[in-house]
């Protein structure tokens, strides 16, 4: 069942088109990554989904309800963390969460329990009575996440939830988001690609407001593999190694690079047809040619590679993926 359904969404600001004919869905319990360079239209899309701004055209449905026609009803289902986590600086964390709980229509009898729950979950105890304006960036993000989680909404929309955080804080937030998987639908945008790769089940990549790819991180990497690449490090003659590998059917190209620090060590980058794993054949060929194999690995395309290929203007690079 789709919790979020974006259909042919277009958002213009005057003459500028921020989002153009964008369509995608997010299933119940899914963690969907939203990737794109700055100005790609991620924030605009998230703002439309949360009902903060209306679409210029197209429809967005949240739990089957149109966000324009049922704006208050759809907002009840969503917890939202805007980029930079804006807060009221003159309010204490306690007052802010209390205010947000009232805005989110949490019953008075359950309010304190709910605030205690998110304070514990986000470890906000040490700053509970501190002004939000005096909190560190890490805490500000956690406070933002805490108010998004208030009321236990079915859907979480998180715009750059880890930007500006240190590595330890990133891991904590990432673990927290992963912990929400299965129970809630989460859409998160991020510039930290390994984070998306580790957290999200599916990734939507947009560029210049347009959809360029939707797939699992692995699926995207696989789609990029027009050519399989293997990295081989050997001790011994580079020519002997090249000759041995070249004889293997499926090998397309071999690049050789001598190790600059250690003598007689060579690195070979082997481009091969992607339909067959050649690692064993390469190992045997090198062994029979009396070349010692120090390292042999298949190189996977990372999400970063896919992202760069899809969001750069070079059409030749794009072709490989599409």
């Amino acid at each position: 069942m789709n919790m979020i359904e974006v259909k042919q969404l277009t958002k213009r600001y005057g003459d500028k088109v921020a989002v153009k004919d964008l369509s995608f869905t997010a299933a119940k319990g899914e963690i969907l990554g939203f990737l794109g360079p700055n100005g790609a239209g991620k924030t605009s899309t998230m703002r439309v989904i949360t009902g903060f701004i209306p679409p210029t055209s197209g429809t967005v449905k949240v739990d089957g309800l149109d966000v324009v026609e049922n704006v208050l009803e759809t907002r009840r289902r969503i917890g939202y963390l805007p980029e930079y986590s804006p807060l009221y600086p003159e309010m204490t964390v306690a007052d802010f969460l209390d205010f947000m709980a009232e805005m989110k229509e949490i019953e008075p009898g359950k309010k304190q329990k709910e605030i205690d729950r998110v304070v514990e979950q986000l470890e906000l105890g040490p700053v509970f009575n501190r002004l939000t304006g005096n909190c560190s960036l890490g805490y500000r993000h956690r406070i933002g996440l805490a108010h998004a989680l208030l009321g236990d909404p079915e859907i979480l929309i998180l715009d750059e939830p880890t930007s500006g955080l240190d590595p330890r804080q990133r891991i904590e937030i990432r673990d927290l988001i992963r912990g929400l998987s299965g129970r809630r639908t989460v859409i998160l945008s991020s510039h930290v690609l390994p984070e998306v790769q580790q957290t999200c089940e599916r990734v939507v990549i947009i560029n210049n407001g347009e959809l360029v790819a939707v797939d699992t991180p692995t699926g995207l990497a696989t789609r990029m593999k027009g050519v399989a690449t293997l990295s081989v490090t050997v001790r011994g003659s580079a020519n002997k190694a090249q000759k041995a590998i070249k004889q293997i059917p499926g090998v397309l190209e071999i690049d050789i690079e001598a190790d600059k620090r250690e003598k007689n060590i060579n690195r070979l980058t082997v481009s091969a047809s992607p339909d067959k794993d050649l690692r064993e054949l390469i190992f045997r060929a090198l062994a029979s040619s009396d070349v010692a194999v120090l390292e042999l690995s298949a190189q996977d395309a990372s999400l970063e590679d896919v992202f760069l290929q899809l969001t750069t203007e070079d059409p030749q690079r794009k072709e490989v993926v599409q």
Binding site: G51, Y80, P82, L87, Y88, M103
Partner: peptide, 14 residues
């Protein structure tokens, strides 16, 4: 200016 309108107007408040 603070961007808190985005926090406020994404809750079920008119």
């Amino acid at each position: 200016n603070l961007g808190t309108s985005e926090v406020l107007f994404t809750t079920p408040v008119s």
